[in-house]
Simulated assay, not measured.
Amino acid sequence: MVAFIVRRLWQAALVMLVMSLLVFLGVFVIGNPVDVLISPDATQDIRNRVIAQYGLDLPIWQQYLHFASNLLHGDLGRSFVYNMPVSQLIASRFPATMELAVIAVLLASLIGIPLGIYAGYKPESWTAKVIMALSILGFSVPTFWIGLMLIMVFAVQLGIMPAGGRGETVSVFGIPVSFLTFDGMRHLILPAVNLSLFKMSMMIRLAASGTREVMLTDTIKFARAAGINEWTILRRHVLRLISIPLVTVFGLELGSTIAFAVVTETIYSWPGLGKLIIDSITSLDRPVMVAYLMLVSLMFITINLVVDLAYAVLDPRMRHGGGK
């Protein structure tokens, strides 16, 4: 098990090194931040001073080495636009995105997995067919259109939900959260539902296909022959046997939800990282873009590591294979 963890950590460090290089080079070729930072009416002396202040006059390899050195020391740079450390800027926005993503993925899992198991357990019933049809609809309809329709119906026409913002928050261990207040929960419902629909469709289809496959195995046949009731079979055998792919999807979808909540946060004016990265791209705030992409890379690598460890717990064959 120790060798398994050490190998995964070494792979994670190597991936982070490669990603830092790709991210830095990718952001470097996107526009010139000097054109945004400096007024067109500024003199050449002012332009040269600002360029030298931000190190933009150095060769790209020196800029990367400077960036990598600061990154190893936990310094993500300073925002061109907000004129504050990027780490503080991201820390102030991350709790909102994390809260929205966790609620959305939990909502998708708690609803999607039971519906998928039912659809796989009774695939010929009309209820199962309706569930699978709705899952296809969840894949097909664009997220931004669903978000706009939710605002139109529940905020504009019915007036029972707010159209945007985060609402009232309370501090828990210094972290502001919305779901513990009534006003915050009202602001959270629509964006969380909007963000969870695609994930819910994926959970439904994955759980349904896994259940149909498991129900044909000898394990289920022997359990039924032993007189075990159907509810116990579904809870103890079916859910356990399909848990590994579900754990994978849960982990990866949590990471992708955090990383790609840009559309939902923009539609609902949710003050998270998604809205921050859109503003940064518009203003060519290079340090914020690089830090955001590095954070996303680190998050996916960490989630993959946790999923691998969960695999080792759920499936001893991987643990023993990893030890070798």
Rank of each mutant, 00 (worst) to 15 (best):
A3H: 13
V6T: 15
W10V: 15
Q11R: 13
A12G: 12
A12Y: 02
L14R: 06
V15E: 05
M19W: 04
L21C: 09
L22H: 04
V23N: 04
F24H: 02
G26H: 03
G26L: 05
V29G: 03
I30Q: 13
P33H: 04
L37A: 02
A42K: 01
Q44M: 10
D45R: 12
D45A: 15
I46T: 13
R47D: 03
R49F: 08
L58I: 03
L58G: 01
I60E: 10
I60F: 10
A68H: 02
S69Q: 10
L71T: 00
L72C: 05
R78H: 14
F80Y: 15
Y82C: 04
S87V: 12
A91K: 07
R93C: 02
E99S: 06
A101T: 11
A101L: 06
A101S: 15
V102N: 08
V105M: 12
L107F: 11
L107I: 11
L107P: 01
L107G: 09
L110W: 09
P114N: 07
P114V: 04
G116S: 07
I117E: 00
A119D: 02
P123T: 05
T127W: 14
V130N: 07
L134T: 12
F139C: 10
V141N: 08
I151L: 13
V153A: 07
F154A: 07
F154Y: 08
F154V: 07
F154W: 08
A155Q: 08
V156W: 09
Q157T: 12
L158N: 08
I160P: 01
G164E: 11
V172C: 01
I175D: 06
T181R: 06
T181H: 09
F182A: 15
M185Q: 11
L188K: 13
L190Q: 10
P191F: 10
P191H: 12
N194F: 06
N194K: 07
L197H: 13
M202D: 11
L206F: 03
V214T: 06
M215W: 02
D218W: 07
T219S: 09
I228Q: 12
N229Q: 07
T232C: 03
L246A: 03
L246I: 14
V247E: 01
S256R: 13
S256E: 10
I258V: 14
I258M: 14
A261Y: 09
V262E: 11
V263D: 08
V263L: 15
Y268W: 12
Y268V: 08
W270E: 05
P271H: 02
L273S: 02
G274D: 01
L276Y: 01
I278T: 11
I278L: 12
S280Y: 01
I281V: 09
I281E: 03
S283K: 11
L284A: 06
M289H: 00
V290Q: 09
L293P: 00
L293T: 08
S297R: 07
I301F: 11
I301Y: 04
T302W: 10
N304T: 06
D308W: 00
V313A: 11
M318D: 01
R319K: 15
G323D: 15
